[in-house]
Write a protein that binds this DNA or RNA. Structure first.
Lengths: 229, 229
DNA sequence: TCTATCATGTAACCAGTTACATGATTTT
DNA sequence: AAAATCATGTAACTGGTTACATGATAGA
């Protein structure tokens, strides 16, 4: 079971890993992250920054180390990482690197609605996806070249990873498109048929309800609980 | 610009696509989804079900079609999809199928912390990932075989997709591991060096400011919550 | 000096999750 | 009939996002 993290926003990870080196005030953290282009590794909503810092503190992962005032500027709160914070950071990184994620849940959700669309629609949408993937791949390739030329080693691994996965997805979508274009619609038809069957099964059952409900009250046909845990 | 969806929970998509065929009451929707194993396509939190239905209604994507009472049971609210709902459903599916997602942001976030870990740690974690991926792939393969044998066509596309992407990721991680094992640490060292450079740059800058930041708050070391409570 | 912009936060809102509530049905 | 289970729903809570606020500095 996935140990729910008290702070799950990736920005929290960035903050923890940054102040694990030395205590800093929030603006310094944010500047470092911006300077290092952390936004390339993760989508960062800067508007959430102070909330995340606050939550990290609330949960004891970071603590106030000092307050610094310079000139007439507002006081700056310097934070340090706590022992609990170091532990959380280590565990978080461990999880991120060692545990693969579920595959692209959004695309899978999209695939599961294929039955609602006409094959022509599906093929059109998939072609758009192919086109978008090709653009992304071209972009990744150019970025990789640039990083290597400018000897900016820091993002090379991510860029390589992106490239590899996108190319794999592109190949798969193209293969699917080819199958569809070749008229291999059996699968899709079966799919749609399944939906129809399910629907009519439900209609029948709904009609049955009330009058013959007892007859199917065995464990076999009984509705299972909605919330399993 | 990305038209924020009023209901972004994937469960909402499932509800919309289900009642797009015919009006239903919530329990019927839930039963259909369970029956069809929708949980395989998307992670569904059933505890959010009624909230999602309520939000769909609040935003005018579904509407109450009827109230039915049978036996002494509580009244059941029958919902239908609205025109706005159909539009949203079509647009949502279009987006899911046509627009690729950003690649595995969590794993990328993990990769970006590599510099904090020792190469040995990194290799150990990546080996765990390889092992997990291999298990998932074995599972996907078995599932695929079973679906084909039992002629359960409905999940075959997703299973094939999962398999393709996981195999690509496995290959990439294994290649990275091989590079690390071969002593190709230059990249990692440069990375760590970059972190250090960034830090010292900051330190220098902070030191510059330091010449003028002589007086510290008298509240030195006191734990002051950002927000009381 | 006036104005724009930046640093630094605060606060309200909102979707989503969990915990709990209620009354019906089934089992013993 | 008592107890257990289940369908169905409500409500409070929480993390995250956006919009706004405030004071300092830099530029015209």
């Amino acid at each position: 079971m996935a140990k729910r993290r008290k702070v799950s926003n990736m920005l929290g990870l960035a903050v923890l890993s940054t102040i694990s080196l030395e205590p800093m005030h929030p603006y310094q953290i944010a500047s470092l992250l911006r300077e290092r282009g952390k936004g390339r590794d993760m989508e960062i909503k800067w508007g959430s920054f102070y909330t995340v810092v606050q939550n990290l503190q609330k949960h004891g992962l970071i603590a106030v180390a000092d307050n610094v005032r310079q000139g007439g500027r507002p006081e700056r709160t310097v934070y340090r990482i706590t022992d609990a914070g170091r532990e959380e950071l280590a565990d978080w990184v461990r999880e991120l690197l060692a545990a693969p994620e579920r595959e692209r849940p959004r695309f899978k959700a999209g695939l599961s609605t294929l039955g609602l669309l006409s094959p022509d629609q599906v093929m059109d949408l998939l072609r758009q996806r192919v086109s978008a993937l090709e653009q992304m791949i071209a972009h990744d390739r150019a970025e990789l070249v640039r990083y290597r030329q400018e000897i900016v080693e820091i993002f090379i691994i991510e860029a390589e990873y992106d490239l590899a996965i996108r190319e794999a997805e592109l190949a798969w979508v193209q293969a699917l498109l080819a199958r569809l274009a070749d008229g291999d619609f059996g699968r899709l038809e079966a799919w749609r048929g399944f939906h129809e069957t399910g629907r009519s099964r439900w209609s029948r059952r709904a009609a049955d309800e009330g009058s013959r409900r007892r007859h199917r009250s065995s464990k076999h046909r009984r509705d299972r609980p909605l919330r399993s845990g």
